[in-house]
Nucleic acid binder design. Sequence first.
DNA 1: CTTAATGTTCCCCA
DNA 2: TTGGGGAACATTAA
Length: 251
Amino acid sequence: MVRSLAPHLVGRTIVSARFTSKHVTPGDRAELARQVTGRRIESIRRRGKFIDVTLDAGHLVMHLGMTGKLLTSGVEGKHTYGVFTLDDGVLLYDDPRQFGSIEWGDARVRRLGPEPLEILLEEFTAALRARKTRVKALLLNQSFLAGIGNIYADEMLFAAGIHPLVKAFKLSAARAGQLHRAMLETLSLAIEHRGSSISDYVDADGKRGDFQALHRVYGRDGQPCLTCGTAIKKAVVASRGTHYCPACQKR
DNA sequence: CTTAATGTTCCCCA
DNA sequence: TTGGGGAACATTAA
């Protein structure tokens, strides 16, 4: 998303902004609009699942929740809750479920754990050893690691051959190493494929990702495991649908 | 009509 | 303080 946004946004000035959801933009929406108006966009980066837009003064931080979209063309729709008019172009924030957020300042970004693509094996192994919770819950915990969501947690646990209910501290150094490698491989490949478009996700140009075609467990419950043929199971773990192969991922 | 959905936070309890 | 479980938020689609 950030890679597709950057060419449209960097160097632009926000001429005006308007916000219309009390869920996406709790607090004073007119004040937020005043804070971003007239500001020049210096850079844009991803941190965890947050999009951090650095302005010539301050930060505009956005999260897409489950169904959020940031589009650089098109017109306002039923669920457009943020409109940024730029000196050249427009940025529309669209989010039917309104689980996303648009806020001033990077306070939430600073509370995130390390980036999965940056954490070193040694630190990762030590961090796992210190936690008694289930490994799937830990992967989803954004203060433990920033940016892993439900799809990628399931996919990397399958790639590592680790059962989602295993307690983190019970993982051997070898298993922690497998998970670290699976994490890097799964996320890198997903990024190469521009993400997973199950129903809503598109980038700033409205383009879908195609990693969903490579999912090996997520959304494949009842279908044969691509490694061993056993039926993929689905259970609820950490209140989230959790897909795994009961044969390849032993407890 | 019911259920589940790419997410986070809050509350209650152990 | 940690961790488990569930509810809440709002909308759509199967």
